[in-house]
Design a protein around this nucleic acid. Structure first.
Length: 359
DNA sequence: AATCCGGGGGC
DNA sequence: GCCCCAGGATT
């Protein structure tokens, strides 16, 4: 650790910088706890620039918790389309419903209560309590861990859950009690624009003189993070199938797991060693005979933990009566398809279809 | 404690 | 390619 840390001066330097340099972001123009909540959920593992348009659309469509509580899941997913981590929006609605029903539509003000809401973990709880209610609660995200690990040269591996406690305590000890809202946002802002992972702008840093790593010339050694991610590689064979009326067959994904409840063109998966014919597989699965017409240019889609290599085929079903339509397997016109929530790798095909590359 | 869960941007 | 992003739920 260190011998001296001037907490008051640190807070002052940080807050003065923040007041002068903070970005003008939509959720910084409100103190409505519900709006702060929406923004914090969207910002989980997602960059500010990505979130802005989604946030504006979302609060325009759902300006109150009551309006969100009543929404259909399909419309929620459509608004969230492209943002990723789709369970976030379902959990948000679940949490909002709890507040409407059990808290008289008032977002609770204690960590215990707010943490009990679906989708609100330790970070988001602290963020809402501090930003919306100006309570001195820690809100430790990746930015905060990076900034504090450099300020104090914390050697612990931040990928280990146990390490988070160290940062919770550091923030609790150093947070401004005069302006917790600005303090927490200022630390995150600092991490986002100055104390960045690869190329920190230490010469522009308002708290440079408080930073042990800077004094040692070691900012790039922090935060300490091990962890390695294995990626699975999977070959995906989607079939873009039309019936005799020109409608397309779409399938709704299961309610749990990857891309839950989103729509897709029916596909079969194949491990790279597997030599079975995808067309035979899909025909067996759908119990229809298919006449294939064209193949799409193969493309890939990278999730954080899975790599999809996608080989799509266009084809026709002679008689749509052969397919038994269900809630999760239906024919749609192109216009109807525009309302369906589809993940990005599915949209790639849909866009090509709209552009008439494959008809 | 480890794994699952999207997608994009920066280097 | 690799890393990381205003993380949380599940196992």
């Amino acid at each position: 650790m260190r011998q001296t840390f001037d907490k008051e001066q640190f807070q002052k330097d940080l807050l003065q910088w923040y007041e002068k340099e903070k970005r003008d972001l939509p959720w910084r123009r409100t103190s409505n706890p519900y709006y702060i909540w929406v923004s914090e959920i969207m910002l989980q593992q997602t960059r500010v620039d990505t979130v802005i348009p989604y946030y504006l659309k979302f609060i325009e469509r759902f300006p109150t918790m009551e309006s969100l509580a009543e929404a259909d899941e399909e419309e929620l997913l459509k608004l969230w389309e492209g943002l990723g981590y789709y369970s976030r929006v379902r959990n948000l609605q679940t949490g909002v419903r709890e507040v409407v029903e059990h808290y008289g539509s008032e977002v609770p003000k204690t960590r215990k209560e707010i943490s009990s809401l679906k989708g609100i973990g330790p970070y988001t709880a602290g963020a809402i309590l501090s930003i919306a209610y100006n309570l001195p609660e820690h809100a430790v995200d990746g930015n905060v861990m990076r900034v504090y690990s450099r300020l104090f040269e914390i050697p612990d591996d931040i990928s280990k859950p146990k390490t988070k406690k160290i940062f919770d305590e550091l923030v609790t000890k150093t947070i401004s009690h005069e302006d917790p809202s600005s303090f927490n946002q200022a630390i995150m802002e600092l991490g986002a624009v100055v104390c960045t992972p690869r190329n920190p702008h230490c010469l522009l840093c308002p708290v440079q003189e408080h930073c042990v790593a800077y004094a040692s010339g070691t900012p790039l050694d922090y935060p300490v993070k091990k962890g390695k991610t294995k990626v699975r590689k999977v070959d995906i064979f989607p079939f873009v199938l039309q019936d005799e009326y020109g409608r397309y067959l779409m399938r709704k994904r299961p309610s749990e797991g990857l891309l839950a409840n989103m729509w897709e063109f029916p596909y079969v998966e194949r491990a790279s060693e597997d030599l079975t014919d995808p067309q035979q597989q899909i025909e067996k699965q759908l119990k229809v005979k298919i006449k294939t017409e064209q193949t799409y240019e193969p493309y890939k889609h990278i999730f954080s933990h899975i790599h999809w290599n996608i080989y799509a085929t266009n084809g026709r079903i002679h008689d749509s009566n052969e397919i038994e339509e269900t809630e999760t397997m239906k024919f749609f016109t192109v216009e109807e398809m525009k309302a369906l929530p589809m993940a990005v790798p599915v949209q790639v095909l849909f866009k090509q279809l709209l552009d008439g590359i494959i008809l």
